[in-house]
Each structure stands twice: as C-alpha cells, then as structure tokens.
Amino acid sequence: MAENQSSENWEPRIVAIVCNWCTYAGADLAGISRIQYPPNVRIIRVPCSGRINPFYVVKALQEGADGILVSGCHPGECHYLTGNLSARRKFAALKSFLNYIGMEGDRTIFTWVSASEGDRFAQVIKGVTEAVRALGPAKKLVKHL
C-alpha cells in the first residue's frame, strides 16, 4: 500500500471493514441506486462488527492505510442482537487510546449504516475521504519495507 505515499497526485486509501447485514447491504443499495461516492474505499466484509478484532484496525494502519472505517448496524438492529454493542465498547476504548498515544483521530472512524441507508453510506464515504484527505498520507505507525 505504500507505493503512492510520496507521489503528488496522492489519493487517500481507506479500508472499510463493514458488517454483512447492514453496512454491506447499505453499500449494495448505494450501488444499485447508482449513488456516486469516492472510489478511495476498499471494502472488507465481515459477519458482524462485533467480529472485528481491534487488531484489524491497527494492522491496517501499520500496512499503510490512510484511514480505516468500521461500520456496523445501528445499536439495537444487530443481526446477532448484541454484536455491535460489544463492538461499540471495544472501539470507544481503542479510539480513545489511539488518540492518547498521538494518532490522528480522523484516521480511525466508526459509524453505523443500516441496509436501507444507501444514501448515508455514500455520505459517510464522502465524509471519511474528505477527513482523511485533509490529514494527508499516513505517516505514524506505517511500516516501510
């Protein structure tokens, strides 16, 4: 991922880890509805936001992602009932800790998008891309081979 770090026409690379039941379906809906959103995002589908090991986020940052988006079902709408509620705690602690050690807060973004919110999904991706673009290429914690 590190190859476009220094080039002038740098584009943010964002890893989106999304849950199968809500956000992925939301992304699907955005696609079906032909809603335009920035192409900077690479989507990884997981069964539930509760399944996302916080290590995925840190690992993606280390491998050179400029931003990470984690998204699941809205609280109370989890397919597995409480997966996103556990995830909320995990990521609240992770985000606070990353911020504490001096990582930029806007690189790790957490949100909820439901299956019917194709429009919100596009808005989220736009928002995240803009936030990460404003920060510039990731430098902290990035492994250079």
Binding site: R88, R89, F91, A92
Partner: peptide
C-alpha cells in the same frame, strides 16, 4: 470485564455522522 459486556446507553460521541 468491561469489553465482555455492554450497556444500551454506552457513550456514542465517537461515532461519525456525516
């Protein structure tokens, strides 16, 4: 253990809203 449980009203101020 805090990460093995949850509350309905856990803080949400870190959630991104475009």
């Amino acid at each position: 253990a805090p990460l093995s449980t949850y509350r309905e009203n856990d803080r949400e101020d870190f959630i991104f809203n475009p």
